[in-house]
Computed example of a mutant assay.
Amino acid sequence: MPQQLAIIVLVDVGNAIADGTLDGNTYLFDNMKLHGSDGQGTGGLVTAINGAYWADGSQASEQVLNWLPYSLGSIPPTVPRGYQSDRARQTDREALAELDALAARPAAGADTAGRLDKIRKSVGTRIKTTRRTSGRLSNEKVLDVTGEVVGDLGTGSYSYPGPIITDIYGEAVDEKIMYPAEYGSPDMVTDGWYWSATVDTSRPGSYAYTMRIQLHKLVVQDGQALWHPVNLTCTSSLRITSEPKRNAFTKAGMGYLPVPMHAPPTEGYAGTDAVTESARSTG
């Protein structure tokens, strides 16, 4: 059965967009730290893959990699799926209640204008729907990392959408060391899609690969806010080692487990006295 290995791609989206690069703004982790992976928590992760082969040199087991991208400084991906929509409806209800209360009061001049401006900010800003930003990135309100709507987009204190891996390529793919592909998943944390790859563990060595990652920058055009895609790349690598497949119990080669011969029980045996005496004598 293939082994499963997760690689976390944590991106500081705000700084990466400001710098125009993922270098210094990406932090990679995997679950092989105790088995030889280097560079945990940096952009230079070297993932250790400990392969195994049979006596004839054929691959004994393959490795399966799963990449999971997350955003640093954004709303956690573990909140309920409809969280943003729920917050948008809640702020709309609150704004309507404040408008009703304002309408019930006599005209108050400057005070009325101030309260209307406060209501406008509490309503927040919705993202414009475009062909490129349809789905989860459109028609939602802009929120900050605490879940509050953002009324002033000029502050820059808003939660970015999570990074999206759009391609995995490079030496490890060209050399047919790994075979990456995007798969559908019922896991809504990854929006129903994730990148995975099988690895040929019978070919020891170090192999680099590159991830193309799409971020989104908030821009305002013609008075409307929208998420503009920004495509950047980062590089990581695999280090494959191999050894003969061994029995986990005996540390020997694969085969039948050695089963020691046991003498018949000497006490509590329900057989005849003769058998019992014989067992005791050979005891």
Results as ranks from 00 to 15, higher is better:
36 G>F: 06
19 D>K: 11
110 A>T: 08
151 G>L: 03
179 Y>L: 09
86 D>S: 15
155 T>E: 06
219 V>N: 03
222 D>Q: 10
125 T>A: 11
68 L>W: 10
195 W>S: 00
98 E>V: 07
177 I>H: 02
90 Q>F: 14
229 P>H: 02
276 T>A: 14
90 Q>N: 09
235 T>R: 11
161 P>A: 03
218 L>S: 02
148 E>M: 09
252 A>R: 13
187 D>L: 11
46 V>C: 09
245 K>F: 10
97 A>R: 10
19 D>R: 09
83 Y>V: 04
3 Q>V: 15
236 S>C: 06
130 T>D: 08
78 T>F: 11
229 P>E: 01
36 G>E: 05
80 P>E: 08
129 T>Y: 05
198 T>V: 11
179 Y>Q: 12
242 S>G: 06
33 K>D: 11
21 T>H: 00
18 A>V: 08
30 D>S: 03
95 A>W: 02
120 R>G: 04
36 G>M: 04
10 L>C: 06
98 E>M: 14
41 G>A: 05
158 Y>S: 05
123 V>N: 05
183 Y>H: 10
276 T>E: 09
149 V>K: 07
68 L>D: 08
234 C>K: 13
219 V>W: 01
253 G>V: 09
39 G>F: 05
145 V>L: 07
229 P>N: 00
142 V>F: 00
18 A>R: 13
158 Y>D: 05
101 A>K: 15
234 C>W: 06
156 G>A: 03
274 A>N: 06
140 E>N: 11
101 A>S: 10
91 T>D: 08
124 G>S: 02
233 T>E: 13
68 L>K: 09
191 D>H: 13
208 A>D: 15
122 S>H: 11
72 L>Y: 12
247 N>Q: 03
190 T>F: 10
13 V>Y: 07
74 S>Q: 03
22 L>N: 00
237 S>C: 07
122 S>L: 13
78 T>R: 10
256 Y>N: 14
165 I>E: 01
128 K>W: 05
8 I>H: 09
182 E>K: 14
15 N>V: 02
165 I>V: 11
24 G>S: 04
133 T>P: 01
104 A>F: 01
201 T>Y: 03
135 G>C: 00
71 S>Y: 00
70 Y>K: 10
80 P>V: 07
49 I>N: 06
125 T>Y: 04
134 S>E: 09
46 V>Q: 12
42 T>S: 15
210 T>Q: 07
59 Q>S: 09
107 A>V: 10
191 D>N: 14
105 R>M: 12
254 M>Y: 11
198 T>G: 12
66 N>Q: 13
156 G>M: 00
274 A>E: 14
18 A>D: 10
220 V>G: 01
204 P>A: 08
10 L>I: 03
211 M>Y: 00
71 S>P: 00
93 R>Q: 15
272 T>W: 01
49 I>R: 03
120 R>N: 08
173 V>N: 01
14 G>E: 13
4 Q>I: 11
212 R>F: 02
194 Y>K: 11
138 S>R: 05
26 T>W: 00
